[in-house]
């Protein structure tokens, strides 16, 4: 059912990493998944076409303002992710307007969070526009903390302050975060999914897989809640 836009106008926030990890994990868990690669650098299309991955995710590149709706209409998978460019653009805002859910990845930095604020305000305003024609239309979103210290490692005071501020502002946030892990960089280097990295000695793969499992599970539970109307 869901079209999931992954957006933060700040580059390097972890949008493509989040998209690829979640998409490949859901696919290996049995879901049909499509990724619309709307990043001009086409990192996920490059990953799919130039590597040896056996992942079943379907990747579509060449997404533009003018063909976004048409590309979305052509997909019949269970999950469609839109990996958006790290800038504020019409393509990003239209993707948000068409999404069922928006993931806003942010690193624990003031710049990232301030830029994420742009995406949050855009989501809220796009929701108001959509409600003019459909009063029940909601565009739920959640912030995802990325590149956080691995469990057990010290958390910076900046991260603690940002988390407290996000909570105080009532901004919905994933309980899971995406830790800083070598394996997440390696998937782009080797052009393989996390599950396919088994023969490569890249950090703690087991912990990385557990991290993605928890995040994917939380995402699916959230989407189920949205479908049932218990999360808005």
């Amino acid at each position: 059912m869901p079209v999931i836009a992954v957006s933060n106008p700040k580059g390097g926030a972890g949008k493509s990493t989040t998209t690829l990890l979640l998409a490949t994990y859901l696919a290996q868990s049995g879901a049909s998944v499509c990724v619309l690669d709307a990043d001009p650098n086409q990192p996920i299309l490059d990953w799919k076409t130039k590597g040896q991955t056996k992942s079943q995710i379907h990747v579509v590149g060449g997404v533009k303002e003018t063909n976004l709706m048409e590309l979305l209409e052509n997909q019949n998978q269970q999950f469609v992710f839109i990996d958006l460019e790290g800038t504020a653009s019409v393509l990003v805002s239209r993707s948000i307007a068409l999404a069922d859910f928006v993931i806003i990845p942010v690193q624990a930095s003031a710049v990232d969070v301030r830029q994420a604020g742009k995406a949050i305000r855009a989501v809220r305003d796009e929701e108001k526009v959509a409600q003019r024609s459909n009063p029940s239309r909601k565009i739920p979103y959640m912030v995802l903390m990325t590149r956080t210290p691995a469990p057990g490692a010290p958390v910076s005071s900046v991260q603690r302050q940002l988390e407290a501020e996000i909570e105080a502002a009532g901004i919905p946030r994933f309980k899971s975060s995406l830790a800083e892990r070598l394996a997440y960089k390696a998937i782009f280097v080797e052009r393989l999914s996390l599950a396919e990295l088994g023969d490569y000695k890249v950090g703690n793969l087991e912990a990385a897989a557990q991290n993605i499992h928890e995040l994917a599970t939380e995402l699916v539970e959230t989407l189920q809640g949205i479908e049932k109307g218990s999360i808005q």
């Binding site: 059912m1 869901p2 079209v3 106008p9 499509c34 533009k64 303002e65 003018t66 709706m69 979305l72 209409e73 997909q75 019949n76 998978q77 269970q78 999950f79 469609v80 460019e85 800038t87 504020a88 653009s89 019409v90 393509l91 990003v92 805002s93 239209r94 948000i96 307007a97 068409l98 742009k118 305000r121 855009a122 305003d125 796009e126 108001k128 526009v129 959509a130 003019r132 024609s133 459909n134 239309r137």
Partner: peptide, 25 residues
Amino acid sequence: VRPRAPIDLPAVDAAAEPHGFVSRE
């Protein structure tokens, strides 16, 4: 994935512009 309901593109673009979302193409 269900087909998307048509959206009012000028209104969508106008709502996003104050936040810096402009055409980059």
